[in-house]
């Protein structure tokens, strides 16, 4: 493994981690698996595509992508999931899968089924010493991703609203008895998760320059795997799981003998970790509360 492979892996891991945070936070706070989360990435990508097409300004594309994803995430929660609060988990899960297909179908109607080039500017490649070759986009992903994750961790740990989020995730009713508006905390959770997914979609487009209606599926499922590996519901777990998966993926891709089996190896890691630790690396025992 070269240093280049490792840095590429960390960077891909940061993308997975950003997406995984959305799965894990929603799971921890709203107690549901939001299977439409991956498709938020796709919506972010088409927002970038449309903005660049009409206005040509990458910075506007970034802002719009975040804004559209946040609004969409919050609206989906309000329209599709909130009416099902207290319904069986299976009903919620099926609704989430339905939302996922709905988003893909809308994208297909609006933009067609074929992949389109998004047209983000290319970034230069840096040669550091004679061994290390990195794309500037990789470093941006790594830097911005790390800053966002540190900021999120501090927000959850130190701010009043962050504490309220922890309280809701541990005991929703007890949190209400403190005066916490649970609906608002859940909306905020979807907003944060979607914003992180939008940022991830931009980083993803720096690596894979096309988008299609199913763009979100693969990074979505990988990030979900990362969240489960790290322990679903755990924020540091999502970060660890994401980085682990990203590094493994890039290493496997760089070794010709392993290359074709990359995805299989990633899921095999999931299975092995769940066999050793059914709750994931940092997951807690699931307690049922009445």
């Amino acid at each position: 493994m070269t240093a280049t492979t490792f840095i590429d892996g960390l960077s891909l891991g940061a993308i997975y981690a950003l997406i995984a945070l959305g799965y894990t936070m929603v799971y921890g706070i709203a107690k549901m698996l939001n299977f439409a989360h991956g498709d938020i990435i796709m919506v972010g990508a088409y927002t970038v595509y449309s903005t660049l097409l009409w206005m040509g300004k990458p910075i506007l594309a970034v802002i719009f992508a975040i804004a559209v994803c946040v609004i969409l995430g919050v609206v989906i929660e309000k329209v599709a999931y909130k009416p099902l609060r207290g319904a069986s988990p299976l009903a919620v899960l099926i609704t989430a899968i339905g939302v996922s297909y709905l988003l893909q179908a809308i994208a297909q109607l609006a933009f067609g089924a074929k992949a389109v080039p998004v047209g983000l500017p290319r970034f230069p490649v840096l040669h550091i010493g004679d061994k290390l070759v990195v794309n500037v986009s990789t470093l941006i992903t790594l830097g911005v991703g790390s800053v966002l994750m540190i900021a999120l961790t501090l927000f959850i740990k130190k701010s009043k609203i962050g504490r309220a989020m922890i309280a809701v995730s541990e005991d929703r009713k007890a949190a209400q008895l403190m005066g916490v508006n649970v609906n608002r905390i859940i909306s905020l959770t979807f907003a944060i998760g979607s914003a992180l997914a939008a940022v991830a979609s931009i980083f993803y487009l720096m690596q894979i320059p096309n988008t299609s209606p199913t763009l979100g599926s693969m990074p979505g499922i990988k990030a979900f795997t990362a969240a489960v590996i790290g322990g679903i519901g755990s924020i540091p777990g999502a970060m660890i799981g994401g980085v682990l998966l990203g590094v493994v993926e890039k290493i496997c891709l760089s070794i010709p003998a392993l290359n074709p089996y990359t995805t299989a190896i990633e899921f095999a890691i999931l299975i092995v970790i769940l066999m050793v630790r059914p709750t994931g690396i940092l997951g807690k025992k699931i307690r049922e509360k009445v």
């Binding site: 504490r163 922890i166 309280a167 541990e170 005991d171 009713k173 007890a174 008895l177």
Partner: peptide, 8 residues
């Protein structure tokens, strides 16, 4: 049953 936030 008190229901304090045990992780905090």
């Amino acid at each position: 049953g008190r229901r304090i936030f045990s992780e905090l």
